[in-house]
Nucleic acid binder design. Structure first.
Length: 825
DNA sequence: GTGAATTATCACTCTTTGCTGTTC
DNA sequence: GGAACAGCTTTGAGTGATAATTCA
């Protein structure tokens, strides 16, 4: 009989059944409801425990110990204790086969909340998965980009193009209007298919799609890039990286969404989010793996582990509905909405799209498109958004709205060209503050993108990307391009850097001209704007202006006006001090703990004195470099505690030096040099903070003298230590060998001739040397038993002795073959 | 039904200058 | 007898982030 050991389980992991049951009922009814535990007896010995009556129907019976050990269900996640409940058996017989236990305690809201909290480990895991997924999707984008450079595909594409559209190649300054006929032709000739055909490689898939004029959204978008590149236009393949969420919970929700996509999505070759999660998860944490398995199981098509888990009723219903909806949609329309989360969602999306962004109603959320460089647009030319699949040109301002409607956050819009990539999210995202928290750490991302951006910049600067292998493979390098007599190439490089720089400027301008958010909360951590209401305790506005606008009556200031405030003490640690006659920028109440400690120490009771205990905060504009007292007459200036706080080099008083060496205090004392212990920090132990000292601070003029004395002292100390160690070693050897000798004497005295100690046996039979350190007193003849069984007294002739001067070990050898090594002290 | 505002909760940060017994 | 050293024991309030709830 096994029972649940709830004491071992953390509160964060309640039983899955209870959690599911909790979801099934509304929070209010859940709180009011009287808890009921239904216990069903199986064969009179097994008890199944379920959270509620309803749950009891779904709970599987608990197996006997040793039975069903390999089951990967949720029960294995529980800790069990062995125990007998004979009374229960008898009780069961009396009552029949079902025992109902009622309890009045309902799970507290705290426990429920706790169960939903994600641990730091889970956050870290989600970040790792996010990063790995990003790298995978970047690699995929590069692969698609490479396929768009295939000369055979491009030639095939040109063969389909009407001759009148070929004139676009003769246009000197390409504009949006020039592109429209071409895009319209593509739009009317290529369609999206829900079925993906795998021909072995993406290039083959694209060729197959070209042949049938039908393919997945990704393939058709790639074909549009093929078309533009075939016409010698500068074009980039752009896609939204639909990556797993940085947040564990978001990732779970998303995994469902993306799993659903895996059923109908044409992106079959892309690494599936759920699969990725499962694979990485299984490598990282088994505990998380179980959780992910459970969540991804209903819809993951490739995850074998997940398939083992029994599907829940709701999941089965969902799948049936999905299949029905897909089949119905397939019969009524020629093209289908690809990769929608669910029929309900897709219909909702369609409805919304009709209202807001009807242009994407044909193919669902925008995931792939093309950017064509139009030199005839604006003064210097610009990149034009072209969604040839949907026949849209220059629709960059609609992408964000369409993605939002389709619940597909626009976090990473990446343009691929020349085997490189560039983050162009800024071009399509107007509300950066919304996506910024869901993007990966900027430093990491910049580091990843830097080499790719360089490749992309070189490639797109060369005009046509596809015709020149050098361009598409810039690893050849700029050095080759800028060879002697290659001035035209040099111009191209210059053009490349100009074009790239102009685009960078454009994106940066967009970043700095983000519209003001309409909700107050958005200003809390907004990178550009701030309102006073959401400033933290240690922040203030300086200067108070300019006011950029208003949100719910609150003036909006530039984020650059937000200044960090700190106490005088804190600024001192940074080598800064408050200028004279400066009033505190802000006065805040200190923590009760600080006030209490101060009150107890100084007996400050009245309100006036208490107000003095308030924390006065100052801003950076009120500071000047720290001016410490100079050391005079060999005396180190110290604080009220008699030490020097060394938070940084700036905190060391002029004319002094900090020596970070141990055991300096006795030396300084002996030389009668003034010094101060160097406080380098605090350590929190036993509910108290303790100062941490490291070395001392002395006047600079004593530095050499004290170091010299320190070196001598250390030498003396090391010599003494060595001497002590040697004496100790000698003593221990003596004790060891004495005990061996005593043992041997006892053996010889009391043991019979046949009994041989293991030590003797080893020495005689193996004829090997025995390392020892026999002192002179151990000189008595050693009687051993030789191989032939005869008693034999070893003798060590002087001529058979070898002395190793390096190790001071003398090897003595008996004619019988026995040898012994003696370390001479 | 949706989005904004408010509230509740949790995890993380900050705090900040001994005492006592034992050994050498 | 004095100096040096090791061990002790494991805060708690404030704050920001975030989820849940309420409100418009």
């Amino acid at each position: 009989m096994r029972t649940r050991n709830t004491s071992k389980r953390p509160a964060q992991n309640p039983p899955e059944q209870s959690e599911d049951a909790a979801k099934a009922i509304s929070p209010k009814s859940r709180d009011k409801r009287k808890g009921k535990l239904k216990v069903g007896l199986d064969h009179g010995s097994s008890v199944k425990a379920c959270g509620t009556d309803d749950d009891a129907k779904e709970c599987a019976p608990v197996k006997e110990e040793g039975e069903g050990e390999n089951e990967g269900d949720a029960q294995t996640e529980m800790d069990w204790e062995d125990g007998d409940i004979p009374a229960m058996e008898g009780f069961a017989h009396e009552l029949g086969k079902e025992v109902t236990v009622e309890f009045t305690d309902s799970p507290s809201s705290v426990e429920k909340r706790t169960s939903q909290r994600v641990s730091p480990e889970e956050k870290e895991l989600a970040e790792v998965v996010h990063k790995v997924h990003l790298l995978c999707l970047l690699a995929r984008g590069r692969m698609v980009d490479k396929a768009c450079n295939d000369p055979l595909t491009q030639a095939s594409m040109l063969s389909l193009l009407p001759s009148n559209l070929l004139k676009i190649t003769e246009t000197p300054n390409l504009t949006v209007d020039n592109l429209k006929p071409l895009v319209n032709w593509f739009h009317s000739n290529f369609q999206i298919s829900t079925e993906s055909v795998d021909k072995g490689s993406f290039e083959s898939n694209v060729r197959f799609a070209l042949q049938n004029q039908k393919g997945t959204a990704e393939e058709v978008a790639a074909l549009s890039v093929v078309l533009f590149r075939a016409l010698n236009l500068t074009a980039r393949f752009v896609c939204i990286l639909d990556v797993t969420s940085l947040k564990p919970d978001g990732g779970n929700q998303e995994s469902h969404r993306l799993d659903t996509k895996a059923i109908s999505s044409p992106i079959r070759n892309a690494p599936s989010t759920s699969l990725l999660n499962t694979k990485i998860d299984s490598c990282l944490t088994p505990r998380r793996n179980k959780r992910y398995k459970k969540e991804t199981a209903p819809t993951s098509e490739k995850s074998d582990e997940c398939a083992e888990e029994p599907k829940r009723k709701g999941d089965i219903e969902f799948e049936m509905q999905l299949q029905m909806a897909l089949s119905a949609t397939a019969t009524t329309t020629k093209t289908t909405v690809h990769d929608s989360s669910s029929p309900a969602e897709s219909s909702g999306v369609q409805r919304k799209l009709r209202g807001k962004s009807a242009i994407w109603s044909r193919s669902g959320p925008p995931l792939y498109w093309t950017e064509v460089y139009c030199s005839g647009e604006t003064l210097n030319g610009r990149w034009i958004h072209v969604d040839a699949v949907n026949g849209i040109v220059d629709g960059e301002d609609k992408i964000e709205a369409a993605a939002a409607v389709c619940k597909r956050p626009l976090r990473y819009a990446i343009a691929f060209a020349g085997n490189g990539a560039k983050d162009v999210t800024r071009r399509y995202c107007l509300q950066w503050y919304k996506i910024a928290p869901s993007r990966v750490n900027m430093q990491w991302w910049d580091k990843v993108m830097a080499p790719l951006t360089e490749l992309e910049s070189v490639a797109t600067g060369l005009g046509s990307i596809n015709k020149d292998n050098t361009a598409s493979n810039p690893t050849v390098g700029d050095k080759q391009l800028i060879g002697p007599g290659n001035h035209s190439r040099l111009d191209h490089i210059s053009c490349s850097s100009n074009r790239s720089a102009l685009e960078d400027m454009e994106l940066e301008t967009r970043a700095l001209t983000e519209p003001l958010p309409t909700n107050q909360l958005a200003y809390k951590n907004h990178h550009l704007y701030a309102i006073e209401k959401w400033l933290t305790k240690n922040q203030t506005l300086y200067p108070r202006g300019p006011v950029l606008g208003y949100c719910s009556g609150n003036p909006v200031y530039p984020r650059s006006c937000v200044q960090i405030l700190q106490t005088r003490q804190k600024w001192l640690r940074e080598g800064l001090q408050v200028r004279a006659n400066q009033l505190p920028a802000k006065i805040v109440k200190p923590s009760k703990k600080v006030v209490n400690s101060e009150l107890s120490e100084t007996s400050i009771c009245d309100a006036e004195e208490q107000s003095k205990a308030n924390l006065e905060l100052y801003g950076k504009w009120q500071l000047e470099p720290l001016q410490l007292r100079h050391a005079e007459n060999g005396i180190v200036p110290k604080n009220e505690h008699g030490n020097v706080e060394v938070w940084s080099e700036k905190c060391i008083p002029p004319g002094t030096v900090h020596l970070r060496l141990p055991r300096l205090v006795p030396v300084a004392k002996r030389l009668e040099i003034d010094f101060a212990p160097a406080l380098v920090g605090f350590e929190f132990r036993n509910a108290r903070t303790y100062p941490v000292f490291e070395g001392i601070v002395i006047c600079t003029e004593f530095k050499d003298a004290i170091l010299e004395a320190y070196a001598e002292e250390e030498e003396r100390r090391e010599a003494a230590e060595k001497k002590r160690d040697e004496a100790q070693a000698l003593n221990r050897w003596f004790q060891l060998l004495s005990s061996i000798a005593t043992r041997q004497r006892l053996k010889n005295s009391y043991a019979g001739p046949s009994s041989v100690s293991p030590l003797e046996e080893k020495s005689s039979s193996g004829k090997s040397g025995m390392v020892g350190n026999f002192k002179d007193e151990v000189k008595r003849p050693t009687i051993m038993i030789s191989e032939d069984g005869h008693e034999h007294e070893h003798v060590f002739p002087v001529e058979d002795q070898i002395f190793d001067e390096e190790t001071a070990v003398r090897t003595k050898r008996c004619p019988c073959g026995f040898s012994i090594q003696v370390e001479e002290l």
